[in-house]
Amino acid sequence: MFEFGEGAAGSYVSQATQQRVKRTAVVLTALLVAVFVTIPVYVMIAIAVQSPSSAFAGGSVQLFVDSLSFENFRVLLTETSTPRYFFNSIVVTASSTFLSTVIAVAAGYGLTRFDFTGKTLMARAVLFAYMFSPIVLAIPLYVIFYTLGLLNSYFALTLALTAISAPFTIWLMWQYFQTVPIALEESAWVRGASRTRTIWDVVLPVARPGYISAAIFSFAVSWNDFTMARVVMSQDEMYTITVGASLFLDRVSIGWGETMAASLLIAIPPFCIALFLQNYLLQGFNVGGLE
């Protein structure tokens, strides 16, 4: 018979050692991810806040910022259609976020509180619809909007973006409303409140983390969209900021500095929303059954 000595293969490894190994692995993985994500962001910021002559001095990219310059931002705001692009993005993002959230709350509540044949199948089918890539939906939607004469309109792009985000937000709210006790509504009904009043005064305050999470998701989909905006909008003045920023590299007078500055401006709103609403986001996804 073979006997393993202390420390040999097959010997007992203490739980404390296992925990240290796991903790070290988690920390190393987090550091690798942080480096992988941070380096492109730093390069973007470094190029954006330097003048083109400084950022590309000597024929190479200078990643160490010696002096700050807002020349790239000045060019964007005064010599390009960036303000118009931002306005377009704000309009369609706000509209799509609102519409998608309202649909998600209504559909999620209906799937949770009303019984009908095929309810679970319908809810899963809604989530399955989210699996389709936007490019798969782009051509059919283009044909529909072209037939209806809705191309190059905020309304068409809002509907297209809602079609992308609504399936997931509906499923999210369906999951979240299952955690809201029906007893709260029954208590309000006993006191004479209508269903509408109960939803407004009782259900929605309790479900706030859920629909805020749904709104954040819808915002991210709409704000970062490129495919639908490029397909639905064909006029330059109707482009969103994501499409507009991609056009800067094709112009003679606009280069990498202005493109990085535009990218930095695009990144600021999602960063602020994630920073200030992260607690709602975590609560919505965790309690909603997505942990």
Rank of each mutant, 00 (worst) to 15 (best):
E6T: 13
A267P: 05
A16Y: 09
I268G: 09
L157N: 01
L161C: 11
T259W: 04
Y239S: 05
A106P: 00
D66R: 12
I39A: 09
T259P: 03
D66F: 03
F70K: 05
Y176A: 03
T179Y: 04
S246T: 15
V27G: 10
L277S: 11
A123I: 08
F217Q: 01
V105R: 01
A46D: 05
Q15L: 13
R84S: 12
V180M: 10
A48E: 01
Y42W: 14
A34E: 11
R208E: 10
N279G: 07
L148S: 07
Q178M: 06
Q62P: 00
F4L: 09
N279D: 13
S53F: 02
T17E: 14
V26Q: 14
M44H: 09
G288W: 00
A104I: 04
V75H: 06
V35F: 12
V143C: 07
V231W: 01
V206A: 09
R230Y: 12
Y109R: 08
R113Q: 08
G58P: 03
G255V: 02
A57F: 08
T117R: 14
F271D: 07
L159H: 00
L121Y: 14
V21Y: 12
R124V: 09
M131L: 15
V37C: 13
S246M: 13
A261V: 08
R208P: 00
S96R: 02
S100H: 03
Q283R: 15
V33A: 14
L264M: 15
W174G: 04
F217G: 02
Y280V: 09
A25R: 14
